Amino acid sequence: MVSLLRDVQGNNPDRHPLGFVCSFVPPERPPLDEEQDAPNGKDVAWAVWQKTYGSCSYCGEPTNPFNRTAANGFQIDHMIPRAHGGSDDIDNLVPSCRRCNNSKLARTPDQWGGRHV
């Protein structure tokens, strides 16, 4: 089979056996500074979900990462809300079910009266 491909390709190893030229090389991504190279949303969501392996940080119930609109749907909550000076830092982000997140709103856990697991 290899010899057949060599015969069809001739002296051009970039030529596909059917005659297509396969010389596309994707451009390299330029290196970014550490400050600019922020993780994407999926990486952040996965890191937050792993904090409790999918359980809500407030009620302890398992969350559903595949249906975020369900009552037990996985959502990311700012433990200290941004409205109260909280940051987007991973240490301030916690997994929450939709029910607790909608109930807590922009309050701290102490103001809300819920518990933090």
Rank of each mutant, 00 (worst) to 15 (best):
V2P: 07
L4K: 03
R6E: 05
Q9N: 00
G10Y: 00
G10H: 00
D14S: 01
R15A: 01
H16Y: 02
H16P: 00
L18K: 00
L18P: 00
E28I: 05
E28F: 07
P30N: 06
L32V: 09
E34S: 12
Q36V: 14
Q36C: 12
D37E: 15
D37P: 10
D37A: 15
A38H: 12
N40F: 10
W49D: 08
K51P: 06
K51S: 04
T52D: 03
T52M: 12
T52P: 01
Y53N: 15
Y53Q: 15
G54E: 06
S57D: 12
G60Q: 02
P62D: 12
P65R: 03
F66R: 13
N67I: 09
A70M: 12
N72F: 07
N72V: 07
G73F: 08
I76Y: 08
I76Q: 09
I76P: 04
H78K: 04
H78C: 04
M79Y: 09
M79S: 11
M79L: 14
I80W: 14
I80A: 10
R82M: 09
S87K: 08
D88N: 13
I90Y: 06
D91G: 06
D91F: 08
D91T: 11
P95I: 03
C97L: 03
R98G: 06
R99A: 05
C100K: 11
S103W: 10
L105A: 11
A106F: 08
R107F: 12
R107W: 11
T108Y: 05
P109F: 02
D110P: 05
Q111F: 14
G113K: 09
G113F: 07
G113Y: 08
V117M: 14
